[in-house]
Design a protein around this nucleic acid. Structure first.
Length: 473
RNA sequence: GGUCCCGUCGUCCAGAGGCCUAGGACGCCGGCCUUUCAAGCCGGAAACGCCGGUUCGAAUCCGGUCGGGACUGCCA
C-alpha cells in the first residue's frame, strides 16, 4: 500500500513554525517510503481565510524545500484540494449520515446546550456528556454525529502507542453548521477518506479530536488512517509557541536571513534525531533515517539561539560564490542601492572573512557597509572606548603618512608597513590597530583590518584616517 | 471540574533491564589562539521529578504521587 500523507494548513495566517514542522515530518515520511505528499487548504473558515495567506504558505513550504505530489496548485486525481470548493461533498456526506442514522439534525438553542454542559460539569462529568440525540427528532438546524455509546474508541498511535477514549467522554459534536458549512472535523475527515490518506501525522493538540474523526470515517464505511500525534512546540518560557517568544512564521525567518537548509535541519531536531550524536545533517540523511515511529513524545522548546548557531554552521559551509549570492541582497538592501561590479569585487576581497563571522545574512551587510559609502558616523561606543585615549592622533597621523608610502596595496604589504611602524613607535599591536579600525570601518568590531583596508583602497583608507584625526578635534 | 497526553543536564536529542561513574548538541564558565569580533581548539559545571514494587540488577518494566501540557465551540 502506498503511503499517502498530507499537511492541511488553514490560510488564516502565514505558515506557523509548528505547522511547518508537521509538514516537514509528513514530507520526510512520504519521501522515506516512496509515498505521496499532499498539500490541502483547510479554508472552511471563510471569514478569516485569504488567497494571500494561502499563496504565502505555499511559498514557505517550497522555500523550506517541501515539494508536494498532489494538492493545491499542482492538482491531482481527486479534484479540488481546497475545502471551500468541496462544500457540496461535505453536505452530501452529512446528509448520508443522517439517512443512515449515524447523525441527526439538532435545532436546540445554544442556551439549552450550555445548560447540559453545566449540569455535566457539576456532576464531574465530561462537558459533552449530556449532548446526545434528543427524543424528538428535528428536521433542521445543525447536524451532529451520534456517538455510539456501546464501546470505547481505541487506536494505536504511531508515536504514543495505545490510546483509548470512553464514548461518554465524546459529545455528539457538530459536523454541519446551520449555514450548511462543514466543521473542521467533517471536512478534514471526508478529505482524508476521499483522498485515501493512509497516515495522519499532526499536532498533539488534535489528539482529543481523533475519536471524532475515527467515528466519522467509520460511519462513512471507510477505514480510518494510522495516526501519529506529534509533540507540540513551546516557546522558551515553556508556554505554547506564540508571537511573544520569537518569530512564529517561516517568512519571518527567511527575511531575518536564515537559510532554508538550516531551518530544515533545526526543525528536524525538534522531536526527532538521526542518532545519538549527529546534529548537522542533509535532507538525504534525514530521509534515509526518518520514521514517524521514532518521533519523541515530549513537547519541544523552540530555541532561537540554537537555530542561529546552526545557521552560522550552514553559512560557513557554503562555498564563496554561494555565500556572496546569499549575502548580496542583504547588503544592497542595507546600502540602499545596487552595487556595481567594482564594489562587488571589493566585497569579494573580504567575503571569506565576512562569511566566517556571519550567523545571519544581514550581519554580513553590517560588516561590509564601510566599503560602500563614507563613514560619516562612528559607532558611539567604539569611539568612546577607543578614540578618547592618549596618543590616538599620533597613531592615526603616522599611519596615514606611512600608508601613503605603500606601493603595492595589498593586505600583507599593509600589515608589514603598519606592524613595523607600531614597533618603531613602541606601541602594542592591539592598542595601535584599534584606532585605525574605528577610523576606517567606523567601529571597533570589524573584519580583519589589513584586508579591510586592502579592499577599501589606498586613497579612501588614508582619507578616513585623516578624517578621523580631524574628528578628534 | 472532566478527558487525554507527557515527565533524562537551563534547552533539544541519545539511552528500548546490566555496555550509564548517563552520551552528543546549543547555551553557560575557564583556557589556548589572536589586530577587534567571530570562527577554531582544549577543559569544566550541569539531568534520570518523587515514593513504592518487579528483578541478582532499573533512567529503562509496573503502580501511585507530584508536576507540566493539550482539549473541553455552529475555530482549526
Amino acid at each position: 500500500m502506498t503511503v499517502r500523507v498530507r499537511v492541511a494548513p488553514s490560510p488564516t495566517g502565514n505558515l506557523h513554525v509548528g505547522t511547518a514542522r508537521a509538514a516537514l515530518f509528513n514530507w520526510l515520511y512520504a519521501r522515506a517510503n516512496d509515498g505521496v505528499f499532499i498539500v490541502r487548504s483547510d479554508d472552511t473558515d471563510l471569514e478569516r481565510s485569504t488567497k494571500e495567506y494561502e499563496d504565502g504558505i505555499l511559498d514557505s513550504l517550497l522555500w523550506l524545500g517541501l515539494d508536494w505530489d498532489e494538492g493545491v496548485s499542482v492538482g491531482g486525481p481527486h479534484g479540488s484540494y481546497r475545502q471551500s470548493e468541496r462544500f457540496e461533498r461535505y453536505r452530501e456526506v452529512a446528509e448520508q449520515l443522517v439517512a443512515s442514522g449515524a447523525a441527526y439534525y439538532d435545532d436546540r438553542a445554544a442556551e439549552e446546550l450550555e445548560e447540559l454542559r453545566k449540569t455535566a460539569q457539576a456532576e464531574g462529568k465530561h462537558p459533552g456528556h449530556y449532548i446526545r440525540r434528543p427524543d424528538q427528532a428535528a428536521t433542521s438546524g445543525v447536524i451532529r454525529l451520534s456517538i455510539p455509546q456501546d464501546s470505547a474508541v481505541e487506536f494505536d498511535d504511531m508515536i504514543r502507542g495505545h490510546v483509548s477514549f470512553e464514548p461518554q467522554d465524546v459529545d455528539d459534536f457538530v459536523i454541519l453548521r446551520t449555514n450548511g458549512i462543514p466543521t473542521y472535523h467533517l471536512a478534514s475527515t471526508v478529505d482524508d477518506v476521499d483522498y485515501e490518506i493512509t497516515h495522519v501525522a499532526r499536532g498533539e493538540d488534535l489528539l482529543p479530536s481523533t475519536p471524532k474523526h475515527m467515528l466519522i470515517a467509520r460511519a462513512m464505511g471507510a477505514d480510518e488512517p494510522v495516526f501519529a500525534h506529534l509533540p507540540l512546540l513551546f516557546g522558551t518560557d515553556g508556554k505554547k509557541l506564540s508571537k511573544r517568544h520569537s518569530a512564529t512564521s517561516l517568512t519571518e525567518y527567511r527575511d531575518a536571513g536564515f537559510l532554508a537548509d538550516a531551518v530544515f535541519n533545526y526543525l528536524c531536531l525538534l522531536g526527532w534525531s538521526v542518532d545519538g550524536d549527529t546534529t548537522i545533517f542533509s535532507r538525504e540523511q534525514a530521509i534515509e533515517a526518518f520514521d514517524l515511529a521514532d518521533v519523541s513524545k515530549n513537547p519541544a522548546t523552540f530555541d532561537p539561539e540554537k537555530l542561529e548557531w546552526m545557521n552560522g554552521e550552514y553559512i560557513r559551509a557554503m562555498d564563496l560564490p554561494a555565500f556572496m549570492a546569499q549575502a548580496l541582497p542583504h547588503i544592497e538592501k542595507s546600502v540602499g542601492r545596487a552595487l556595481d561590479d567594482a564594489e562587488i569585487e571589493s566585497f569579494r576581497e573580504i567575503a571569506a572573512l565576512v562569511q566566517e563571522r556571519t550567523k545571519l545574512l544581514p550581519e554580513a551587510a553590517e560588516q561590509v557597509r564601510f566599503l560602500f559609502g563614507n563613514v560619516d558616523e562612528y559607532d558611539q561606543k567604539s569611539w568612546d572606548k577607543v578614540m578618547t585615549k592618549d596618543g590616538v592622533a599620533e597613531i592615526l597621523g603616522a599611519a596615514s603618512t606611512r600608508l601613503s608610502g605603500v606601493e603595492r596595496w595589498a593586505a600583507d604589504a599593509i600589515e608589514d608597513s603598519l606592524r613595523s611602524m607600531l614597533s618603531e613607535m613602541e606601541i602594542g599591536v592591539g592598542k595601535g590597530l584599534q584606532p585605525m579600525r574605528v577610523a576606517v570601518t567606523g567601529s571597533s568590531v570589524s573584519p580583519p583590518l589589513f584586508e579591510s583596508m586592502a579592499a577599501l583602497g589606498k586613497q579612501r583608507t588614508i582619507d578616513r584616517l585623516d578624517a578621523a584625526r580631524a574628528h578628534l578635534g
